[in-house]
Amino acid sequence: MCWNFTMWGVMRMRFEDFINEEKRGRKLPDVILEREMRETGVPIELLRREMVKLLNVMLEESTKQYGKRQRTLSEMAGENGYLMANHRAKMLSEFSHTATTVALSLAESNAAMGRVVACPTGGACGIVPAVLYALKVHMNASMDELLNAFIVAGGLGWVIEKNATISGAEGGCQAEIGTAAAMASALLVYYFTHQGERCAHGAAIALKSMLGLVCDPVGGFVEVPCVKRNGIAVNIAISSAEMALAGIESVIPFDEVVEAMYRVGRSLPESLRETGMGGIATTPTARKIVMEMKKHKKFKW
């Protein structure tokens, strides 16, 4: 049934409120799960189990798709994860190299109708698993530690969804890939510090660097430029988390950055919100690719 609860005015949700609860001595993941329980009536233990399921799928798929060649729907992508996996990084750390490879591989798997976790969306599905997998492989993180950091990332993404949007059609790429980068940054910072306030700084720095990013998929396919943006955004998440760990703070608080992101999204013209009618999608090469595709039987009903 379609009940629109927003009409009744839901309780406001700020990441700051979660942090304040944490300052009163509670654990941040517990605060977030309790809020979900209040809203949906689903018991906390069941929620935790559901989160574990998602986490397991992410790690399984990261292992399975790592560096794999994919046959994507439009075949504009499919080799990126493979190339990155077989390249010996000159500048990236091992951690970042692994994360980049996973992000590219999962985004390509998504484009090839593979199994993914839409965290927060299909188009941005590579970023959060990438940092989880890198933590597991390079930091030997336990499932418990990963789960707690994942819940914090989820809570942060939830705040963005409540106060802005996580849909590219509504807010552009900044709302999808930008949200994923903010979530991944918070995840990393929580893993290393267990401090909500620092997570907010990491996430704010990440989201600020994605502000204004438009959604301009060539031919409407979730491939160009989406796949590579997954690979790049995970590095924005890692570097902003590193800054937060160094003690660098975002001058503008996270919740205000979220509001700014929403305002920017709303002022984007429709041509730059998932319609495939602006940005990269309307370059001469993109037009040529789409023309060629339309001649092909595969792309007709």
């Binding site: 809203e39 929620l47 998504n110 484009a111 839409a118 990332a153 989820g154 939830w158």
Partner: peptide, 21 residues
Amino acid sequence: MSLLDVVGPVMVGPSSSHTLG
């Protein structure tokens, strides 16, 4: 949306509205 809607669900790509829905 609930927390679980934001961090999930598990689906087959590429797009939640064009495939999952």
